[in-house]
Amino acid sequence: MKTYSEAEVKAKLEKLDYWDFEDGYLVTSLDFKDFADAFAMMTRIAFEAEAQQHHPEWSNVYNNLTIRLTTHDAEGITEKDFMLANKIEEIIKG
Protein backbone atom coordinates (compact mmCIF):
# COMPACT_ATOMS: atom_id res chain seq x y z
CA MET A 1 0.00 0.00 0.00
CA LYS A 2 1.45 3.35 -1.06
CA THR A 3 2.00 5.93 1.65
CA TYR A 4 1.74 9.58 0.69
CA SER A 5 4.57 12.05 1.19
CA GLU A 6 3.91 15.11 3.32
CA ALA A 7 3.58 17.23 0.17
CA GLU A 8 1.06 14.77 -1.31
CA VAL A 9 -0.94 14.74 1.93
CA LYS A 10 -1.07 18.54 2.06
CA ALA A 11 -2.17 18.72 -1.58
CA LYS A 12 -4.97 16.21 -0.98
CA LEU A 13 -6.05 18.05 2.17
CA GLU A 14 -6.95 21.08 0.06
CA LYS A 15 -10.05 19.14 -1.03
CA LEU A 16 -11.21 18.58 2.55
CA ASP A 17 -12.85 21.18 4.79
CA TYR A 18 -12.26 19.86 8.31
CA TRP A 19 -8.88 18.13 8.29
CA ASP A 20 -5.25 19.02 9.05
CA PHE A 21 -1.98 17.08 8.97
CA GLU A 22 -0.39 16.85 12.42
CA ASP A 23 2.34 14.52 13.70
CA GLY A 24 1.79 12.03 10.87
CA TYR A 25 -2.01 11.91 11.22
CA LEU A 26 -4.99 13.39 9.45
CA VAL A 27 -6.70 15.21 12.34
CA THR A 28 -10.01 16.94 12.89
CA SER A 29 -11.68 18.32 16.00
CA LEU A 30 -15.43 18.88 15.86
CA ASP A 31 -17.84 20.53 18.29
CA PHE A 32 -21.48 19.51 18.56
CA LYS A 33 -24.48 20.86 20.44
CA ASP A 34 -24.02 18.45 23.34
CA PHE A 35 -22.72 15.03 24.35
CA ALA A 36 -25.66 13.19 22.79
CA ASP A 37 -25.04 14.78 19.39
CA ALA A 38 -21.31 14.03 19.59
CA PHE A 39 -22.00 10.41 20.53
CA ALA A 40 -24.59 10.03 17.77
CA MET A 41 -21.99 11.23 15.25
CA MET A 42 -19.44 8.77 16.64
CA THR A 43 -21.97 5.98 16.14
CA ARG A 44 -22.60 6.95 12.51
CA ILE A 45 -18.85 7.18 11.84
CA ALA A 46 -18.26 3.84 13.59
CA PHE A 47 -20.58 2.03 11.17
CA GLU A 48 -18.74 3.55 8.19
CA ALA A 49 -15.32 2.76 9.68
CA GLU A 50 -16.40 -0.84 10.18
CA ALA A 51 -17.70 -1.04 6.60
CA GLN A 52 -14.34 0.23 5.33
CA GLN A 53 -12.37 -1.90 7.82
CA HIS A 54 -10.40 1.21 8.72
CA HIS A 55 -10.78 2.43 12.28
CA PRO A 56 -9.97 5.90 13.62
CA GLU A 57 -8.21 6.89 16.78
CA TRP A 58 -10.61 9.22 18.51
CA SER A 59 -11.55 10.87 21.75
CA ASN A 60 -14.72 12.47 23.00
CA VAL A 61 -15.06 15.02 25.78
CA TYR A 62 -18.61 16.25 26.28
CA ASN A 63 -19.52 17.90 22.94
CA ASN A 64 -16.09 17.63 21.28
CA LEU A 65 -14.95 14.79 19.05
CA THR A 66 -11.32 14.58 17.93
CA ILE A 67 -10.46 12.09 15.18
CA ARG A 68 -7.00 10.99 14.04
CA LEU A 69 -6.45 8.85 10.96
CA THR A 70 -3.39 6.92 9.81
CA THR A 71 -2.82 3.52 8.25
CA HIS A 72 -0.85 1.68 10.92
CA ASP A 73 0.01 -1.27 8.65
CA ALA A 74 1.62 1.10 6.13
CA GLU A 75 3.12 3.36 8.80
CA GLY A 76 1.74 6.51 7.20
CA ILE A 77 -1.11 8.19 5.39
CA THR A 78 -2.66 6.18 2.56
CA GLU A 79 -5.71 6.38 0.34
CA LYS A 80 -7.62 4.49 3.05
CA ASP A 81 -7.27 7.52 5.33
CA PHE A 82 -8.55 9.92 2.69
CA MET A 83 -11.45 7.62 1.81
CA LEU A 84 -12.58 7.57 5.45
CA ALA A 85 -11.95 11.31 5.92
CA ASN A 86 -14.09 12.07 2.87
CA LYS A 87 -16.88 9.83 4.14
CA ILE A 88 -16.72 11.42 7.59
CA GLU A 89 -17.11 14.84 5.97
CA GLU A 90 -20.17 13.58 4.06
CA ILE A 91 -21.68 12.31 7.32
CA ILE A 92 -20.95 15.58 9.13
CA LYS A 93 -22.43 17.70 6.37
CA GLY A 94 -25.50 15.49 6.33
Rank of each mutant, 00 (worst) to 15 (best):
F21I: 13
T3Y: 00
D37Y: 01
F47W: 12
L69K: 03
E50T: 11
M42P: 04
F21R: 06
K12F: 13
K80S: 09
E6P: 04
D31C: 00
L26T: 02
N86F: 04
V61R: 05
E57I: 05
T28G: 01
D23L: 04
D34I: 01
F21Q: 08
M42Q: 08
D23W: 03
N64V: 11
A51F: 08
T3L: 02
E6L: 06
R44Q: 15
M41R: 05
H72P: 05
D37Q: 04
D31E: 13
I45R: 00
W19A: 01
T70S: 11
K15N: 13
K12L: 15
Y25I: 08
Y18T: 02
D20E: 15
K33V: 06
A36S: 12
A7S: 12
F47T: 08
L30H: 09
E48H: 05
S59K: 04
H55S: 05
R44M: 07
T28V: 06
T43L: 08
D81F: 01
W19N: 00
K33S: 07
E79H: 09
D31W: 01
A74R: 01
A7F: 06
S29L: 07
E57F: 09
Y18Q: 05
K12M: 14
D73C: 09
E48L: 10
A51Y: 12
L65Q: 00
I77H: 00
L65Y: 02
G24F: 01
T71M: 04
E75R: 14
A49Q: 10
